[in-house]
């Protein structure tokens, strides 16, 4: 018995090495699943607090461009408001409340960002206490940014659109053809649009927007512009490259969106699925 223990003691470094590597790889694979352990990422209280403090110092350097973007967004919203507000000389009727208030919005500040790995994440300075929940969409005035992956009390971690596993349900604005935008891990300024059939006529410069189908993003948020169209190598789909409309290297403030009807939509979908499975 003593000999076995001595033998194991002699191998303690190897055993510890194997154990620690197993833990590390278990982290790697469990983190890539949909719901990662939130404690061990940048949204935990200690890391989030430190990052927020750093951001408080660094943010002064780009206040100018942030102000400019906000002013631009304001101008656009004012124009929308002008278009939507009723004129004095006309009569308006509220037809129906079906589409009213199906999305809720929050704003948050990006306190940590990466864009050069294959799987990039952001950290935001709002968490469960502010009403943020996993699965919400994240965007800014330029276009889509990502989807909330996990939240802690005061911070949240977001899967960036620059993440090779994130698919964003999108469509070509002019022709309403659907596809999925997906980052190919190469250039943080471009992405691919998948599953567009070959017969569709796609022009360079076409605008790609969110489709609103997966109920994460409202319909019509900018995703990017078509920069290249090639016939796919062997599949029935076109190989479309996008230029992303969001500049991920300059993310500062973002908006979060939650579809308040999502549960209803999902349960309806589920009912349908069960019904057709039953037949």
């Amino acid at each position: 018995m003593q000999r076995i223990l001595l033998f194991l003691y002699g191998l303690r470094a190897l055993i510890l090495f194997i154990l620690l590597e197993l833990i590390a790889f278990w982290f790697i694979f469990s983190y890539n699943s949909a719901q990662g352990a939130v404690f061990f990422n940048s949204s935990n209280r200690l890391a989030g607090g430190l990052l927020e403090r750093k951001e408080a110092v660094v943010s002064y350097f780009y206040l100018g461009s942030v102000n400019e973007a906000l002013a631009e967004k304001n101008a656009r919203l004012l124009k929308r408001l002008e278009d939507l507000s009723p004129r004095d000389d006309s009569v308006t009727l509220d037809i129906d409340t079906l589409f009213r208030h199906s999305y809720e919005f929050w704003s948050a500040k990006v306190i940590n960002n990466s864009l050069h790995l294959s799987q990039n994440h952001l950290t935001l300075n709002k968490g469960a206490e502010d009403g943020i929940r996993p699965g919400m969409g994240v965007f800014n005035e330029q276009g889509v940014v990502g989807r909330v992956k996990g939240v802690s009390r005061n911070f949240s971690t977001v899967i960036s659109a620059l993440h090779t596993d994130l698919l964003i349900s999108s469509k070509i604005k002019s022709s309403n053809v659907f596809g999925s935008a997906n980052w190919d891990g190469k250039n943080p300024k471009s992405a691919k649009l998948l599953y567009v059939p070959r017969h569709v006529n796609v022009q360079i410069g076409d605008t790609i927007v969110t489709s609103g189908y997966n109920a994460i993003f409202p319909e019509g948020l900018a995703v990017g512009y078509v920069s290249e169209v090639m016939p796919g190598s062997e599949s029935a789909y076109l190989d479309i490259s996008l230029e992303l409309s969001t500049d991920f290297s300059k993310l500062t403030y973002v908006y979060l969106v939650d579809n308040t009807m999502k549960e209803e939509l999902d349960s309806l979908q589920l009912q349908l699925d069960q019904r057709y499975d039953g037949q």
Partner: peptide, 22 residues
């Protein structure tokens, strides 16, 4: 682990650094 927490790359730096340490 600490670097991974801030890089949001859980386990990647850890695995590589443990190998280096070994």
């Amino acid at each position: 682990m600490v670097v991974d927490v801030f890089y949001d790359s859980l386990g990647m730096n850890t695995a590589a650094t443990v190998l280096l340490a070994f």
